[in-house]
Simulated scan of single mutants.
Amino acid sequence: MIKLTIDTVKKLDLFSNADPETLEVITKLLKIRTYPKGSYVFLEDQPAFGICFLINGSVKITKSDSSGKEHILKLVKESSVFGEVVLFNGGNYPATAITIQDSEIAILYNNDLEEQIKTDPQLALNLIKIISVRLRNAQDKIKQLALMDTKRRLYSLIINWSNNSERKGDSIYIDVSLTQQEIADLIGTTRETVTRTLKELKDSKVIEMSKGQIILLDMDRLKTYALI
């Protein structure tokens, strides 16, 4: 299990501009938990216990419809906060968080965070900014689902993933921990459409595929496809 340090905590988006004293306090308050692949971090409608930070691994946020079908709302990036929307109004988690890789997650329990905010209002401002970004991303996703066809949604998703991926020369190596069915759920289409579209991109030499990775070879052409 990783040992949290002040340097690790400073990389978390909520505490990126915190002062040294705050970082020291938060480092002591955070509790590290290890979750094997496929574990529930929290469940939809479960009483909220705190906010979570992905230290390493991968987590998906999902919501189920009336028929029980799972819909992926977003993927959590390392060093990002999730479960934060319940902080200001309490209540239950509005969605489910599931690990899709073995993951280490730091938890800041509600009482501890509320006490810290009383002495450091900058944390509250940071949370408001993060929630604002979440709302903007949700609006963008609604617009994509309404206005983009399924191929363009997949193109846009790959472009978005590439922004935080490793570059080697002209190629971008995108780690993908989702199955093709999960990718389909994320963009509101079928697995067959995802499989067919990825094959078309591969045949056009826009991407290459390897186990657990999409290698983006031609970003300019993919961006052109996304705008058509």
Rank of each mutant, 00 (worst) to 15 (best):
E21A: 13
R167G: 08
D112I: 02
Q180W: 05
A18M: 12
L127M: 15
N164I: 10
I61T: 01
V194E: 02
K118C: 11
N92Q: 13
V76P: 00
R196T: 12
K151Y: 06
A95C: 14
K168L: 07
G83A: 10
T27H: 11
Y109T: 07
G169N: 13
R136I: 13
D220M: 12
L23I: 13
L125Q: 09
E84A: 13
N164P: 06
G50L: 00
I158H: 00
M209F: 10
T96C: 14
L113C: 07
I215L: 06
L157Q: 03
A97V: 10
E182A: 12
T119F: 08
S103I: 02
E208H: 09
E182G: 04
K3L: 14
T5Y: 12
D13A: 05
L12R: 01
Y225L: 13
K129E: 12
R221C: 03
Y35K: 08
Y35Q: 05
F82K: 04
Y225A: 05
K63R: 15
I172S: 01
L147K: 09
G38T: 08
G169H: 13
H71L: 13
Y40H: 09
Q46C: 05
R152K: 15
L147C: 05
L30H: 08
E192D: 11
I228H: 09
Q101S: 14
I159S: 04
E84H: 10
N17R: 14
S16V: 10
I172D: 00
R196N: 11
K141Y: 10
D140C: 07
I26M: 14
K3Y: 13
T96H: 10
E24M: 15
R153T: 04
R134C: 03
Q46Y: 06
L127N: 08
Y35F: 15
